[in-house]
Write a protein that binds this DNA or RNA. Sequence first.
RNA 1: GGCGCGGUACCCAAGUGGUAAGGGAGAGGUCUGCAAAACCUUUAUGCGUCGGUUCGAUUCCGACCCGCGCCUCCA
Length: 494
Amino acid sequence: MALSLYNTMSASVEEFRPLRDNEVRMYACGPTVYDYGHIGNFRTFIAIDILRRVLRQSGYKVNHVMNITDVDDKIIRNAARDGVTVQQYTAKYEKAFLEDATMIGIEPPTLVRATEHIPEMAEFVAKLVEKGFAYRAEDGSYYFRIAKFPQYGRLSKKDFRGMLDGARVDVDEYDKDSARDFAVWKAPKPGESSWDTSIGRGRPGWHLECSVMSMNALGETFDLHAGGEDLIFPHHENEIAQSESLTGKTFARFWFHARFLLVEGEKMSKSIGNFFTLRDLVLKGHKPSSIRYLLASVPYRNQLNFTFDGLKQASVSVERLRNFYVRLTEGHFTDGSGDEIQALADETIDRMRAALDDDLNTAQAQAAIFEMVRRVNSALDAKVIKKGDVPALLEALAQFDEIFAVLKDDDGSKMKQVFDWALTEGHEKDISPELREAVQSGQLFDADIEEKIAQMETARRARDFKVSDTLRAELTAAGIVIENTKDRVRWRRK
RNA sequence: GGCGCGGUACCCAAGUGGUAAGGGAGAGGUCUGCAAAACCUUUAUGCGUCGGUUCGAUUCCGACCCGCGCCUCCA
């Protein structure tokens, strides 16, 4: 079975093979660091992260490059508003983005920054001009001449023939040859960041950075180019135009686009009040693992309806998996092994692989692992799991978690980070009682909890249930869940 | 207006030309001093509506209704 992916360029699912034997070169359009990342951003970045993990699980070495757009109109505007330099401004939000990405389980890609590639970008523009694909306007801006690139519109399936020389729509852009031509280089404006370069003073157009940095890092033709669906047009279309007109070669072989999500059934927007950053959700007391699980649970090309009910459900699902893992690793088993369980583990792995190979069908991969969890739990209840069965089951679980990355319970420390951030950044009023409780339970020392549990057990053995129930209630109130099993008392933080 | 995607149980959500995965929630039960975990049973003769093709359609085709996206810098 081989990995198949939907390619926006061909508008169909194709078998994926990298150009080089064992190495996948992929470029992802990263964030413009002008604000904290919202859950829509992270839906896309998690989809890309899952793609990367599936590629690796498929045996490829993945060279994953992502850009940070650290100069653009919004950044310039907001930095001016806050009275800081563009660098100070972007540094803050880049740091926040990387913290968020780590919090939500995204493996760090190699980062490239627009402002660190200004000379290369100017050089690129100069070459475009030399070949006649771009021209300089009177004010010192440079535009790409779409009329010179007949394939324009191939990715987004738009037909621009006959409309290239339409009416001049914008008085500010009077010196473009065609209304459709897009800026590759912007002339300096008073108060805006600009750089002195071989083609004059100014700053890069947005699309330019991705063409230059991706080819710089990965070569003129690379395997995968990813981003949110909104980037198909104009961003990626323009990248293709610039890059391919210059090199005469295919720019990216596969185009991967994640669909936008809905929040509570509606498009996320600040005016509707359903706009949430990742930090907003953690402040409300939601675990990063729940958020990741929910965002990963709907295949990336489907619309995902992000709801708070769904978040709760995701949290319970993750807990179920974690409980299962604990049950396997801490249980006592008799020696031996059985073919049936081995077969179940193998079948589960096969089903997960087949699901992920089919254009990253994460929902089906989850269904496969849960099928195994239910059947093995049942077998555990019936005491038919043997010691020799456990490694195969753990292997299936591990393969699942190589993709979904939710088993490890480090939610407490991550939530603590957000808690601390809220205190230092003046968002204390936004800290929910739930987050407060989660942080507090995380601050309890294990030894103190175990001391209380020991007291509870003494009381229980003496059948003094009044005392034991009081102790249990105290621990529950502190966010500690206690499970009395036959062998021992298990506890965990809620 | 142009191009594209989707409407599946109380909620989230896969999927297939041959009779509906998985998770959550609810109800009942097993286990249990209580609780938790776990298991079992149960919850869509039905997959937006109306037609058509077919032996057979939720799955294909058409129309309609509704939701969503892109159409110059929003992931």
